[in-house]
Design a protein around this nucleic acid. Structure first.
Lengths: 132, 132
DNA sequence: CATTTATATATAGATAATCTATATATTGTT
DNA sequence: AACAATATATAGATTATCTATATATAAATG
Protein backbone atom coordinates (compact mmCIF):
# COMPACT_ATOMS: atom_id res chain seq x y z
CA UNK A 1 0.00 0.00 0.00
CA UNK A 2 0.90 3.61 -0.14
CA UNK A 3 1.87 4.84 3.29
CA UNK A 4 0.05 2.85 5.92
CA UNK A 5 1.88 -0.34 6.64
CA UNK A 6 -0.15 -2.29 4.23
CA UNK A 7 -3.51 -3.86 4.67
CA UNK A 8 -2.85 -4.34 8.32
CA UNK A 9 -3.77 -7.96 8.48
CA UNK A 10 -7.12 -7.48 6.84
CA UNK A 11 -6.29 -8.68 3.36
CA UNK A 12 -8.08 -12.00 3.76
CA UNK A 13 -11.20 -10.35 5.13
CA UNK A 14 -11.32 -7.89 2.25
CA UNK A 15 -10.93 -10.59 -0.36
CA UNK A 16 -13.60 -12.75 1.22
CA UNK A 17 -15.76 -9.66 1.38
CA UNK A 18 -15.46 -9.22 -2.37
CA UNK A 19 -16.21 -12.87 -3.03
CA UNK A 20 -19.26 -12.63 -0.82
CA UNK A 21 -20.80 -10.54 -3.57
CA UNK A 22 -19.83 -12.63 -6.54
CA UNK A 23 -17.21 -14.94 -8.02
CA UNK A 24 -14.14 -13.09 -9.23
CA UNK A 25 -10.70 -13.71 -10.63
CA UNK A 26 -7.58 -12.35 -9.01
CA UNK A 27 -6.76 -9.42 -11.21
CA UNK A 28 -10.36 -8.34 -11.05
CA UNK A 29 -10.16 -8.27 -7.26
CA UNK A 30 -7.17 -5.96 -7.34
CA UNK A 31 -9.11 -3.49 -9.45
CA UNK A 32 -12.30 -3.78 -7.47
CA UNK A 33 -10.49 -3.32 -4.18
CA UNK A 34 -8.92 -0.18 -5.53
CA UNK A 35 -12.11 1.28 -6.93
CA UNK A 36 -14.38 0.37 -4.04
CA UNK A 37 -11.92 1.87 -1.59
CA UNK A 38 -11.34 5.03 -3.62
CA UNK A 39 -7.70 4.07 -4.17
CA UNK A 40 -6.98 3.43 -0.53
CA UNK A 41 -6.36 -0.27 -1.01
CA UNK A 42 -3.78 -1.06 -3.60
CA UNK A 43 -3.06 -4.64 -2.91
CA UNK A 44 -0.10 -6.02 -4.80
CA UNK A 45 -0.36 -9.07 -7.00
CA UNK A 46 2.46 -10.56 -4.98
CA UNK A 47 0.25 -10.32 -1.92
CA UNK A 48 -2.97 -11.49 -3.50
CA UNK A 49 -2.06 -14.68 -5.30
CA UNK A 50 -0.33 -16.43 -2.41
CA UNK A 51 -3.25 -15.32 -0.25
CA UNK A 52 -5.78 -16.84 -2.65
CA UNK A 53 -3.87 -20.10 -2.62
CA UNK A 54 -3.92 -20.19 1.14
CA UNK A 55 -7.64 -19.44 1.24
CA UNK A 56 -8.16 -22.36 -1.10
CA UNK A 57 -6.03 -24.61 1.05
CA UNK A 58 -8.12 -23.73 4.06
CA UNK A 59 -11.31 -24.50 2.20
CA UNK A 60 -12.64 -20.96 2.26
CA UNK A 61 -12.78 -20.72 -1.51
CA UNK A 62 -12.91 -23.00 -4.53
CA UNK A 63 -11.49 -22.34 -7.97
CA UNK A 64 -12.57 -22.91 -11.52
CA UNK A 65 -11.10 -21.77 -14.80
CA UNK A 66 -12.72 -19.86 -17.60
CA UNK A 67 -11.38 -18.35 -20.77
CA UNK A 68 -11.41 -14.60 -21.06
CA UNK A 69 -13.65 -14.70 -24.14
CA UNK A 70 -14.61 -16.69 -27.20
CA UNK A 71 -11.68 -17.92 -29.17
CA UNK A 72 -8.99 -16.76 -26.78
CA UNK A 73 -6.49 -18.86 -24.96
CA UNK A 74 -6.38 -16.53 -22.01
CA UNK A 75 -7.46 -18.37 -18.89
CA UNK A 76 -8.86 -16.74 -15.79
CA UNK A 77 -9.13 -18.44 -12.43
CA UNK A 78 -12.40 -17.63 -10.79
CA UNK A 79 -12.72 -17.93 -7.06
CA UNK A 80 -15.93 -18.88 -5.31
CA UNK A 81 -16.51 -18.51 -1.58
CA UNK A 82 -17.61 -21.64 0.26
CA UNK A 83 -20.08 -21.94 3.11
CA UNK A 84 -17.10 -22.26 5.44
CA UNK A 85 -15.56 -19.19 3.89
CA UNK A 86 -18.72 -17.21 4.46
CA UNK A 87 -18.72 -18.15 8.11
CA UNK A 88 -15.12 -17.11 8.46
CA UNK A 89 -15.88 -13.86 6.73
CA UNK A 90 -18.77 -13.03 9.06
CA UNK A 91 -16.49 -13.77 11.97
CA UNK A 92 -13.72 -11.55 10.64
CA UNK A 93 -16.17 -8.82 9.89
CA UNK A 94 -17.45 -8.89 13.45
CA UNK A 95 -13.89 -8.78 14.72
CA UNK A 96 -13.25 -5.78 12.53
CA UNK A 97 -16.28 -4.00 13.95
CA UNK A 98 -15.06 -4.67 17.47
CA UNK A 99 -11.59 -3.51 16.55
CA UNK A 100 -12.75 -0.32 14.87
CA UNK A 101 -14.93 0.56 17.78
CA UNK A 102 -12.07 -0.04 20.18
CA UNK A 103 -9.90 2.33 18.17
CA UNK A 104 -12.63 4.92 18.34
CA UNK A 105 -12.79 4.51 22.09
CA UNK A 106 -9.09 5.10 22.40
CA UNK A 107 -8.83 7.97 19.99
CA UNK A 108 -12.00 9.70 21.01
CA UNK A 109 -14.93 10.13 18.70
CA UNK A 110 -17.08 12.95 17.62
CA UNK A 111 -20.86 12.51 17.72
CA UNK A 112 -21.01 10.96 21.15
CA UNK A 113 -22.87 7.74 20.70
CA UNK A 114 -21.86 6.08 23.90
CA UNK A 115 -20.89 7.64 27.16
CA UNK A 116 -17.21 7.01 26.71
CA UNK A 117 -16.94 8.84 23.46
CA UNK A 118 -19.11 11.60 24.81
CA UNK A 119 -16.95 12.02 27.84
CA UNK A 120 -13.88 12.27 25.69
CA UNK A 121 -15.41 14.94 23.56
CA UNK A 122 -16.50 17.01 26.50
CA UNK A 123 -13.06 16.47 27.94
CA UNK A 124 -11.65 18.59 25.18
CA UNK A 125 -10.36 15.89 22.94
CA UNK A 126 -10.39 17.53 19.58
CA UNK A 127 -12.07 15.58 16.83
CA UNK A 128 -10.54 15.73 13.42
CA UNK A 129 -11.99 16.62 10.11
CA UNK A 130 -15.51 15.81 11.07
CA UNK A 131 -15.40 12.40 9.50
CA UNK A 132 -15.79 9.68 12.04
CA UNK B 1 -3.11 -9.60 20.93
CA UNK B 2 -5.64 -12.31 21.29
CA UNK B 3 -6.75 -13.51 17.87
CA UNK B 4 -6.44 -10.70 15.37
CA UNK B 5 -2.91 -10.45 14.16
CA UNK B 6 -2.03 -7.86 16.63
CA UNK B 7 -2.57 -4.18 16.53
CA UNK B 8 -2.36 -4.18 12.78
CA UNK B 9 0.19 -1.45 12.52
CA UNK B 10 -1.74 1.00 14.62
CA UNK B 11 0.19 0.69 17.84
CA UNK B 12 1.98 4.02 17.42
CA UNK B 13 -1.24 5.85 16.67
CA UNK B 14 -2.94 4.40 19.71
CA UNK B 15 -0.09 5.30 22.01
CA UNK B 16 0.10 8.83 20.66
CA UNK B 17 -3.66 9.00 21.08
CA UNK B 18 -3.31 8.23 24.76
CA UNK B 19 -0.55 10.77 25.20
CA UNK B 20 -2.68 13.36 23.48
CA UNK B 21 -4.82 13.32 26.59
CA UNK B 22 -2.13 13.40 29.23
CA UNK B 23 1.39 12.34 30.11
CA UNK B 24 1.64 8.69 31.01
CA UNK B 25 4.16 6.01 31.84
CA UNK B 26 4.41 2.78 29.92
CA UNK B 27 2.74 0.37 32.23
CA UNK B 28 -0.10 2.81 32.67
CA UNK B 29 -0.60 2.89 28.90
CA UNK B 30 -0.97 -0.86 28.74
CA UNK B 31 -3.73 -0.73 31.33
CA UNK B 32 -5.46 2.25 29.79
CA UNK B 33 -5.38 0.73 26.33
CA UNK B 34 -7.01 -2.36 27.70
CA UNK B 35 -9.70 -0.58 29.66
CA UNK B 36 -10.54 2.02 27.04
CA UNK B 37 -10.89 -0.66 24.40
CA UNK B 38 -12.92 -3.00 26.59
CA UNK B 39 -10.12 -5.58 26.54
CA UNK B 40 -9.75 -5.56 22.78
CA UNK B 41 -6.25 -4.13 22.85
CA UNK B 42 -3.85 -6.08 24.98
CA UNK B 43 -0.57 -4.68 23.88
CA UNK B 44 2.44 -6.56 25.22
CA UNK B 45 5.18 -4.87 27.16
CA UNK B 46 7.60 -6.30 24.64
CA UNK B 47 5.78 -4.33 21.98
CA UNK B 48 5.31 -1.13 23.89
CA UNK B 49 8.73 -0.31 25.27
CA UNK B 50 10.66 -0.60 22.03
CA UNK B 51 7.90 1.43 20.42
CA UNK B 52 8.20 4.19 23.01
CA UNK B 53 11.94 4.34 22.42
CA UNK B 54 11.43 4.72 18.72
CA UNK B 55 8.84 7.45 19.22
CA UNK B 56 11.34 9.27 21.36
CA UNK B 57 14.06 8.85 18.73
CA UNK B 58 11.77 10.37 16.15
CA UNK B 59 11.03 13.33 18.40
CA UNK B 60 7.34 12.54 18.81
CA UNK B 61 7.62 12.24 22.57
CA UNK B 62 9.91 13.33 25.38
CA UNK B 63 10.59 11.52 28.62
CA UNK B 64 11.04 12.45 32.23
CA UNK B 65 11.34 10.36 35.34
CA UNK B 66 9.31 10.48 38.50
CA UNK B 67 9.21 8.29 41.56
CA UNK B 68 6.08 6.32 42.15
CA UNK B 69 5.44 8.01 45.51
CA UNK B 70 7.04 9.66 48.50
CA UNK B 71 9.92 7.75 49.90
CA UNK B 72 10.02 5.03 47.29
CA UNK B 73 12.81 4.18 44.93
CA UNK B 74 10.46 3.04 42.21
CA UNK B 75 10.97 5.17 39.15
CA UNK B 76 8.43 5.70 36.43
CA UNK B 77 9.22 7.10 33.00
CA UNK B 78 6.59 9.54 31.92
CA UNK B 79 6.12 10.25 28.26
CA UNK B 80 4.98 13.59 26.92
CA UNK B 81 3.80 14.15 23.36
CA UNK B 82 5.59 16.91 21.44
CA UNK B 83 4.15 19.35 18.97
CA UNK B 84 5.64 17.23 16.22
CA UNK B 85 4.09 14.16 17.79
CA UNK B 86 0.69 15.79 17.83
CA UNK B 87 0.95 16.57 14.16
CA UNK B 88 1.91 13.01 13.38
CA UNK B 89 -0.97 11.78 15.46
CA UNK B 90 -3.49 13.96 13.66
CA UNK B 91 -2.12 12.64 10.41
CA UNK B 92 -2.36 9.03 11.49
CA UNK B 93 -5.82 9.58 12.81
CA UNK B 94 -6.94 10.97 9.48
CA UNK B 95 -5.37 8.01 7.72
CA UNK B 96 -7.22 5.70 10.05
CA UNK B 97 -10.50 7.39 9.21
CA UNK B 98 -9.80 6.99 5.52
CA UNK B 99 -8.80 3.39 6.03
CA UNK B 100 -11.87 2.54 8.11
CA UNK B 101 -14.13 4.12 5.56
CA UNK B 102 -12.44 2.18 2.77
CA UNK B 103 -13.04 -1.06 4.65
CA UNK B 104 -16.69 -0.15 5.03
CA UNK B 105 -16.88 0.49 1.31
CA UNK B 106 -15.49 -2.92 0.54
CA UNK B 107 -17.41 -4.90 3.11
CA UNK B 108 -20.63 -3.05 2.82
CA UNK B 109 -22.13 -1.81 6.02
CA UNK B 110 -24.35 -3.92 8.19
CA UNK B 111 -28.00 -2.94 8.55
CA UNK B 112 -27.82 -0.92 5.39
CA UNK B 113 -29.57 -3.17 2.98
CA UNK B 114 -27.84 -2.39 -0.27
CA UNK B 115 -24.44 -2.62 -1.74
CA UNK B 116 -22.82 0.35 -0.08
CA UNK B 117 -23.85 3.42 -1.93
CA UNK B 118 -26.76 3.74 0.43
CA UNK B 119 -24.75 2.59 3.37
CA UNK B 120 -22.36 5.49 3.26
CA UNK B 121 -24.97 8.00 4.05
CA UNK B 122 -24.44 10.99 1.84
CA UNK B 123 -20.81 10.16 1.60
CA UNK B 124 -20.76 10.82 5.29
CA UNK B 125 -20.00 7.41 6.72
CA UNK B 126 -22.32 6.82 9.61
CA UNK B 127 -20.84 7.86 12.91
CA UNK B 128 -19.30 5.08 14.84
CA UNK B 129 -21.94 4.76 17.46
CA UNK B 130 -24.35 3.54 14.84
CA UNK B 131 -22.30 1.48 12.50
CA UNK B 132 -19.11 0.07 13.85
C1' DC C 1 8.94 -13.53 57.62
C1' DA C 2 9.05 -15.72 53.40
C1' DT C 3 6.81 -16.28 49.17
C1' DT C 4 4.13 -14.93 45.72
C1' DT C 5 1.91 -11.51 42.90
C1' DA C 6 1.75 -6.99 40.82
C1' DT C 7 4.21 -3.05 39.19
C1' DA C 8 7.68 -1.22 35.91
C1' DT C 9 11.00 -1.32 32.31
C1' DA C 10 13.95 -3.70 28.95
C1' DT C 11 15.95 -6.68 25.08
C1' DA C 12 16.76 -10.68 21.90
C1' DG C 13 14.87 -13.81 18.86
C1' DA C 14 10.73 -15.98 16.55
C1' DT C 15 6.75 -15.38 13.80
C1' DA C 16 3.68 -13.61 10.35
C1' DA C 17 2.03 -10.55 6.80
C1' DT C 18 2.93 -7.67 3.20
C1' DC C 19 5.99 -5.70 -0.26
C1' DT C 20 9.59 -5.71 -3.95
C1' DA C 21 11.37 -7.74 -7.62
C1' DT C 22 11.10 -10.80 -11.03
C1' DA C 23 9.16 -14.19 -14.24
C1' DT C 24 6.00 -15.99 -17.85
C1' DA C 25 2.37 -15.64 -21.34
C1' DT C 26 -1.60 -13.51 -23.71
C1' DT C 27 -4.09 -9.52 -25.52
C1' DG C 28 -4.74 -4.77 -26.97
C1' DT C 29 -2.72 -0.41 -28.61
C1' DT C 30 0.33 2.71 -31.20
C1' DA D 1 7.19 -4.16 -34.23
C1' DA D 2 7.15 -2.49 -29.88
C1' DC D 3 4.87 -1.38 -25.88
C1' DA D 4 1.29 -1.39 -22.40
C1' DA D 5 -2.24 -3.86 -20.11
C1' DT D 6 -4.07 -8.20 -18.59
C1' DA D 7 -3.34 -12.37 -15.73
C1' DT D 8 -1.01 -15.41 -12.70
C1' DA D 9 3.02 -16.87 -9.97
C1' DT D 10 7.10 -17.27 -6.64
C1' DA D 11 11.35 -16.08 -3.93
C1' DG D 12 13.39 -13.05 -0.86
C1' DA D 13 13.39 -8.68 1.90
C1' DT D 14 11.17 -5.89 5.16
C1' DT D 15 8.63 -4.73 9.19
C1' DA D 16 5.68 -5.13 13.15
C1' DT D 17 4.24 -7.63 16.71
C1' DC D 18 4.69 -11.51 19.86
C1' DT D 19 7.14 -14.79 23.00
C1' DA D 20 10.32 -15.47 26.20
C1' DT D 21 13.27 -13.84 29.32
C1' DA D 22 15.55 -10.64 32.49
C1' DT D 23 15.92 -7.22 36.27
C1' DA D 24 14.18 -4.69 40.30
C1' DT D 25 10.81 -2.65 43.56
C1' DA D 26 6.39 -2.81 46.03
C1' DA D 27 2.34 -4.96 47.78
C1' DA D 28 -0.25 -8.86 49.32
C1' DT D 29 -0.63 -13.40 51.22
C1' DG D 30 0.16 -17.38 53.99
Amino acid sequence: MSDKTALSGNAAMLILGLLFRRDMYGYEMLEELRSRSQNVFEMKAGTLYPLLHSLEEKGYVTVYEETAGEGTRKVRKYYHITKKGKKVFEQKRTEWDVYARAVANVLGVKNAGDDLAGALFLGGFKPIGGVL
